[in-house]
Design a protein around this nucleic acid. Structure first.
Lengths: 191, 191
DNA sequence: AGCTCACTATACAGATCGGTATACTCCTGA
DNA sequence: TCAGGAGTATACCGATCTGTATAGTGAGCT
C-alpha cells in the first residue's frame, strides 16, 4: 500500500467512525488525506471499496490487539475471559469512544449483499466463537450458553460505552463476568 | 397531525430504520408517503425535524408499550424485570429486526448539539433509571450495580438481535437475568 | 540521461441532495 | 355559494454527491 493510500485509509477510518459512513464524502476524505480524488480512485476504485477496507483493517487490528492481550494473559481460562474485557477497555479508550464500529456500520449498511456485510457479521461470529471457546474451558457442559452470556455482556458494554450511559461500563461488565465465573465455574480449569 | 403528515412520518420511520438516516433523501420519503415535497416541508420544515419526530415518536411508542406490559405484569419486582425483557422481545419481533433505533441513529448523529441527541441519550438514561428502580426493590443496597448489569444485558441482547449473532438473544438475556435475580435477590420483594 | 510511477492540480459529468416557488384541485363548513 | 385550508403536480434553485478526464510534477532507479 502506497503512502498516499495509507493516508486515505487513515482519514477515511477516522471520518467514517466519527461522522458515519454516508455522511462523509470522498472529497472530504481526499482533502483530509492531502490527496487528490484522482489518486484516491486510482488506489481504491470506489468509495464502497474504501468502506470495505476500513472495516477489514479495523477488524484485523482489533483481532491482532486482542491476540496480543490474550498472549500476555495468564493461561487460566477465567483470566483469559477477563483479559478480553481488559482488551476492550483499552481499545475503546483509544479507538472507540463512539461504540463498536461494526455495529455502527451495520446501522448504515442494510443490504446483506453489500461487500462489507460479511466483515461485520464475521467479526461478531468470531467473537462469539472466542467466548464460547473460552467458556468451554470453564464449564464444558454449558459452553454455548456461557459464551452467549459473555457475548451479551460484552456487546452491551460496548454500546453503553459509546452512548455514555454510565461511566466505564466495560469495567462494570468485567466485574459482573468475574462474579459470574466465580459462581459458575467453581474451579476455573487450566488451559 | 394531518393525514399526509402522518404518512410522511410513517414512511420516514420505516426508511430511516431500514436504510439509515443519511442514506434516505426527502424525495424518497415524499414518494413513499404519496406526498409532494411541498407538503412535506409545509408540515415539518426540514429533514432534521423529521428525524427528530421519528425518534421522539418511536421513543414515545416504546415507553407506552413497555408501560402497558409492566401494568399487565405481576407486582413482584423480579417478574417486572423479566417483563421488560418480554416487552423487548415482543417489540423487537415486530419493529426492531435491525436493533435499537436509538443506537443506530447515534451511529449517524455525531454532533451532541443535534436536536435529536437528547432523545437518544434520554431514552437510555430512562431505561437505566427504570432498571435501577426495579433493582432497588430486589437488592436495595446494590440497586445501582444491579441496574447497570440489567442495562448491559438488555443492550447487548438488542445488539445481538439486530446483528443476528445467535437466535433469540433477548430470551437468552431473560434467562440469564432470571438466574441472576434468583442468586442475588433471595426473596424478591413485593412492590 | 531517460524511464517509470506515485502523486498533484484542475476541471467537469451526471445524479442527487435539501429546500423553495408557482399554480392548481379538492373538501369542508359557514 | 363561496372562502379557505389541505393537499397536489411540476419545475426549479444552489450545493454537493460519486466518479472521470487531462495535463503536469517530482523522486528514485537503471
Amino acid at each position: 500500500m502506497t503512502p498516499a493510500a495509507r493516508r486515505v485509509l487513515e482519514a477515511a477510518a477516522r471520518l467514517f467512525y466519527e461522522r458515519g459512513i454516508h455522511a462523509v464524502g470522498v472529497d472530504l476524505i481526499a482533502a483530509e488525506a492531502r490527496v487528490t480524488k484522482k489518486t484516491l480512485y486510482d488506489r481504491f476504485g470506489s468509495k464502497e471499496q474504501i468502506v470495505v477496507e476500513y472495516l477489514a483493517d479495523r477488524d484485523d487490528r482489533w483481532r491482532a490487539f486482542l491476540a496480543q492481550c490474550l498472549d500476555a494473559a495468564q493461561p487460566v481460562s477465567a483470566a483469559r475471559v477477563l483479559a478480553v474485557f481488559d482488551a476492550s477497555r483499552a481499545w475503546s479508550a483509544k479507538n472507540s469512544s463512539k461504540g463498536c464500529s461494526m455495529v455502527n456500520a451495520h446501522a448504515e449498511i442494510s443490504d446483506p449483499s453489500h461487500p462489507a456485510y460479511p466483515i461485520i457479521t464475521g467479526q461478531k461470529e468470531w467473537m462469539l466463537a472466542l467466548f464460547t471457546d473460552l467458556a468451554g474451558d470453564i464449564a464444558p457442559g454449558r459452553a454455548a450458553q456461557l459464551g452467549r452470556t459473555l457475548m451479551l455482556l460484552h456487546e452491551g458494554a460496548l454500546v453503553a460505552h459509546g452512548l455514555h450511559v454510565f461511566p466505564d461500563p466495560i469495567s462494570h461488565a468485567r466485574e459482573q463476568v468475574q462474579t459470574l465465573l466465580a459462581t459458575t465455574g467453581g474451579a476455573a480449569a487450566k488451559r
